[in-house]
Write a protein that binds this DNA or RNA. Sequence first.
DNA 1: AAAGATTGTCTCTTACAAGAGACGCATGTA
DNA 2: TACATGCGTCTCTTGTAAGAGACAATCTTT
Lengths: 262, 262
Amino acid sequence: MQDGSVLAVSADEKTPGSREKGLNRVLEILEFLHTTQRAIGIGDLAKGVNAPRSTTYTLVRSLVDAGLLEMAGDGNRVYFGKKLYLYGMDYVRGNDLLRRGRQEVDHLSRETGETSELCMLQSGRYTIVHSSPGTRPFRISSATGLQIPLPWTASGRLLLAGLDRAAIEAMVSDDDLVLPDGRKLRLEDFIADIAKAGVTGYCVTSGLVDAYTKCLAVPVFSAPGKVEATMCLVVPIDTSEERTADLIGLLRGRAAGLSIGG
Amino acid sequence: MQDGSVLAVSADEKTPGSREKGLNRVLEILEFLHTTQRAIGIGDLAKGVNAPRSTTYTLVRSLVDAGLLEMAGDGNRVYFGKKLYLYGMDYVRGNDLLRRGRQEVDHLSRETGETSELCMLQSGRYTIVHSSPGTRPFRISSATGLQIPLPWTASGRLLLAGLDRAAIEAMVSDDDLVLPDGRKLRLEDFIADIAKAGVTGYCVTSGLVDAYTKCLAVPVFSAPGKVEATMCLVVPIDTSEERTADLIGLLRGRAAGLSIGG
DNA sequence: AAAGATTGTCTCTTACAAGAGACGCATGTA
DNA sequence: TACATGCGTCTCTTGTAAGAGACAATCTTT
């Protein structure tokens, strides 16, 4: 059985006299910096990942030497380093879908004026991989790279299309089914949504993450039947039926262009 | 007394019964993938970084679980993962200079038709952080992220401007002074070049990396006197004096726009 | 079909890194 | 002048992860 608990950052403290593996500490550090989105002092970093100060200093030094982290302006703060940027560019280069998807998303948001996003599964969770803000006065933006429970989003329903019931259950925890406003989704309904989305080839959700927006998503295939990513538009919840349909049509066309044998 | 020997990838084998730290192995793995620029089998990866197979399997599993690496299409090859891309984007977001520099470079290459690059120091070595190919029939391209000895480039001379003699010597090994064609640069000449570049505010080198190109570089400052990056154009070696001067003027203007109090 | 190479998993040992904590040096604040 | 708080470095111990190597299961080659 898969042990899903990668990076159980805080939470437990199982064995009292247990030491944490250095690599795991590093992974936690990176993840922590990703959430803070800013340079942070090493002391605070140690607190943040709940690691001993001495260990943290050692690890940070290694990472800085390697260029994965950099000391930020002041002198005693750290943040991501150039190496990570370079590796990230390597990833983009080796990944046609991401490269073209980014362009398509930028293009879509300019064309429609709506916020547009490219989403993928990332270690079992929904992730906004690239987003381009719309031209509307109010910005509907979720941070790139943010991990969001799958049931909260239209894309989540598409990304799970094709998986069997057991696989879906394994990816969705009970907490995930609780929406930001406190409502609880029924697992049955979610699974039904997924099935429906798989058939219709698109998905629209209204007022799930917040009360003012509607999310229109379509799948991007990496192989027939395999949903690799989704493209979505985040529009005001009162967008007309007609415009919604138009936008979905547009999305589907573009997604088809991205897909490989869809 | 900085111990420069991070990632002494191959080379020594000092203590016979010595074990390598997991984190270092990971750093080597990442660096190796960066050089190969493609997905690679775990067995080959182990060979490539000269690590035991069992260890490599364990580490790769951790990294894949964490999303830093991904199993590539076939199923038994690995390459960089989405997480690294996300971290890289975080780096870009937190780094005004890089963000604006990338745009400027893209713009410059479109405007001049020449290959344009943004370069920075990366753990003591010259690194092409972003490059945009020119429109010339022959492409002069060095891979992004490639680490090149400082003395081979015009940018290298500018990046070291402001450092004292000792600091320069510490950053340049004897091997670095040997050019690709076998000629050996004198350290004195290199240091003199640096001083001159610091005063004139630009640097031109001809036929250093290869016999057909000339490199025009200007510094980008992050603080008065502190060279954070360089922008450069790679042009045919027979480019006229006049056009060269024009291009340098253009570069200087753009670099000034990027600099913060320069 | 036998021999060889490769792949993924597992076990066991011991070299060594994670961590506790002390230390000196800066700050800040009573 | 004392007292507290945070930073960076260092030392020493011990729990544990790196690594050697055996294993069965595929694929290639001959």
